[in-house]
Each structure stands twice: as C-alpha cells, then as structure tokens.
Design a protein around this nucleic acid. Sequence first.
DNA 1: TTCGTCCTGGTA
DNA 2: TACCAGGACGAA
Length: 281
Amino acid sequence: MPELPEVETIVGELRPLLVGRRIAGLRALWPGTLGDMDPADLSAHLAGQEIVALGRRGKYILLYLKDGDVLVVHLRMTGRFFLCPAGAEPDRFTRVVIDLDGGEELRFADLRKFGRIQLARAENLATVLPRLGPEPLGEDYPWAAMKQAMGKRRAPVKSALLNQQLLAGLGNIYADEALFAARIHPLRRADTLNEDEWQRLHAAVRATLLCGIRNRGTSFRDYRDGRNQRGSNQESLAVYRRTGQPCFACGAPIQRTVVGGRSSHYCPRCQTLPVADAGSP
DNA sequence: TTCGTCCTGGTA
DNA sequence: TACCAGGACGAA
C-alpha cells in the first residue's frame, strides 16, 4: 500500500528520468482511472508538453508540465507508476500508458482500479487535491503542531494519524509502526495523550517514515517503485502483519485489533491501554 | 463520527 | 464459496 515513503521513493527515482522529457500521448486501457476526462481529449492536450518537475504532497504524485498543467496521480491501495521500455507487453493490470519521447513509456498499473489520474492547473491545485494536513517530515512541523491538531480528539489516536486532513501521508502500515515505536496503544483516545507521549509519537512518526524511505518502501504484494522494483522495508517492520509472532522488544505475541474499520497491530505488553480507554472503542 | 462503497486476487 | 485487504469519499 503506497504511503508517504513509497510515493517519495517513486518520485525521487522518476524525477531525474522524467524532467526534460516530452509527452507524446496517452492511452487508457481502463478509462475509469481518468475519472470524467475523455482519454482522446487528454491525450491531445498532453501531446508535446514537456515535464519540468516532479513533486509529492501527502500520498499524491505531482507531474508539473511546462505550460502550467499538473498531472495529479494517486496510487490508492494497489497502484504502480513506473517507467518501462516502449512496446513491452503490458500486464493485465495496466490501466493507463503515457507515451514519452525517446522510446519509453510511463505506466499506471492498478489491480483494484482505485487509483486515479487527474489534471489541474498549477495555480488551481487546491481544487483537485483535498484538504491536506502538514507534511510530517517538513521542517515546520514541531511536535506541538501534532498535539494541537490531534490533541482534542476523542477518537483513537490511530484514527487521528490516518486522517489526511490532520497529517498528510501516513497509512495503515506506518501508523501501526509509529505507535509501536512510541509505545502507545492504537486505541488510546487522542485527547488522553500527555506532552511526553506527543513528543514520542511525533519523533516516532518521523523516524518510521525516514526508515521506510531509506528502505525504498514496503512491498508486501503490490507496491513497486519507479522502476517496478520491490522495496525492502517489510523486513524492518516490528508489528504490522506480525500477528502472533513475538515482539522484538519483549517477546509477547503481537496482537491484531480493528480501529476505525482498519486492522491494527500492536504489542499488548509494550503498548498498554489505560482502563479508562479500554471500555470505549 | 461511523459506515458503506468502490474493486479484485489471494486465502481459508 | 465466502471473506479479507484498505485509501478516500459520501451518506447517515
């Protein structure tokens, strides 16, 4: 599942390969990826345009074009966005192909068809992007900003971490890992965390995301980077999808619960839940 | 704030 | 054959 580290890896890898290239056209093998846009119209609109920059905001990939357009790509759960030689046989999950000059193509593949590609003007990006919280790795994101955004919420702290309006880029994997690193139970009500816990959680979120980036992302089944290669961060996970296996810190079996409809993994001994929270899911 | 929806391959 | 995975969004 592509979260901030996976998207950052893809963008960092594609940037030097794409900047300066021209788009020759676009083909939609499954037009739903483009929403309401007509594939032929979009292809004609993009043809000849030069890619001048790549960026990331939260889990969104941003391709800036020379005349002020921006292609906004979201991989959702199973999307892949990668460069490959033109004419290579597309797999059955390839949804959109962007043809480039120089004999290569940019492919958007997506098993579950949840991912989307949108077009916006650079000055109107906000009309396409939803309201997004701050970047967790940004220089202007102190722990107090996390406490201010989430600290009055009665919802479980895990739900607050996944809320993209409060913080942009965390998904289920890195939220579980950050909570373990901070020794905070995913069901803790956000408004019960003290300052020490907010500082720990803030540091843990950043450290967990940086670890994911260092390892070029987490690949279980679907995620691949900008060259369609697997990441290795799945080998560094402490709790996510380790249900029943011993905690690396204390040996207790990792447990799974559901928070806000999402599976959540934690160590019952390292991440304890105060009695006051235990009865109010 | 919570739940259903969109999707389909893999697994029990 | 039924169920599970889950990001984002709209409805209740």
